[in-house]
């Protein structure tokens, strides 16, 4: 566990995903211009920046939701062609959203079970009879999902429709759904937005535990600088779609360009 304010000084070598000279624009608006950075296997990588800096757009490019006009993304050593989000998911990239994107009509359990859909293969016929492979599969995956439910301490809301849950719990269920896919790379878009201190601490603990216990590589966007500096191994800073800083938290914290982007410059 990190000492608050000190950052985590771990070293990672193997590059899991690298972003090379990505540019993305919507009509005349340039969301990202010429961004390059990498995410190494096993690390917690934070993307920070003021509002509208292009952080979420960056995540959307990584999981195939947006297609950058220029540049390339290399994942696990393979330069990636244009792909759909579900293909990215099949390769082991999961994510959560800034505005919770749960399946509101379903229970917590079903939401997290849906996270395992890529691993469930039994066909319609067996599903209709719910015997043989379909029944076995359902129980086998339920076991995994129950472990995630235990891990996130949400046993009591297992059967509750997620639409009725408080915000903090919904965020947790959404993390559970992403974890159920057993991703190699987990993208978290503002996992602590709108939470109180206690909920933030819980969420930090979950993020660190996921990283430690499952070895999942995590890339997160967060506005709470205390959190970012505490839990992340390396930080990349965006501003107006350009990269203005990259490095371990201590370096970034003292970088002149970063401070200017956040505090503004006097003219």
């Amino acid at each position: 566990m990190a000492i608050p304010g000190e950052g985590r000084s771990r070293v990672f070598d193997e590059v899991l995903l690298s972003v090379e000279n990505i540019s993305l624009s919507f009509g005349g608006v340039r969301a990202l211009s010429d961004i390059s950075f990498d995410i190494r296997k096993g690390e917690i990588r934070a993307i920070i920046g003021p509002n509208g800096a292009g952080k979420s757009s960056m995540l959307n490019c990584i999981n195939g939701f947006y297609h950058p006009q220029q540049g390339a993304i290399t994942y696990k050593g393979v330069r990636r062609a244009r792909m759909r989000p579900h293909e990215a998911a099949a390769q082991g990239i999961a994510r959560t959203f800034q505005n919770i994107a749960l399946f509101k009509g379903m229970s917590t359990l079903d939401n997290i079970m849906t996270g395992r859909n890529l691993r469930m293969k039994s066909g319609l016929f067996w599903q209709a009879l719910r015997i043989g492979p379909a029944a076995r599969e359902e129980i086998e995956h339920r076991r995994v999902v129950e472990r995630i439910i235990d891990f996130l301490e949400i046993q009591h809301i297992r059967k509750a429709p997620v639409g009725q849950l408080p915000y903090g719990l919904q965020k947790r269920v959404e993390l559970g759904r992403a974890l159920a896919a057993e991703p190699e790379l987990l993208l978290l878009d503002e996992p602590m937005a709108g939470m109180n201190l206690e909920e933030k601490q819980d969420m930090c603990r979950f993020v660190l535990d996921v990283n430690d216990e499952f070895g999942t590589t995590i890339c997160l966007i967060e506005h709470d600088m205390g959190v970012v500096m505490d839990i992340s191994d390396r930080v990349v800073v965006l501003d107006y779609g350009r990269k203005i800083g990259d490095g371990v938290p201590d370096t970034v914290k003292n970088d002149k360009a970063v401070i200017e982007a956040y505090l503004g410059v006097s003219h």
């Binding site: 998911a89 994107a101 749960l102 399946f103 379903m106």
Partner: peptide, 13 residues
């Protein structure tokens, strides 16, 4: 999942 939020559904596979 498709009914409730098709984008999130696609993103988890």
């Amino acid at each position: 999942a498709i009914r409730d939020m098709d984008i999130a559904a696609e993103i988890i596979g």
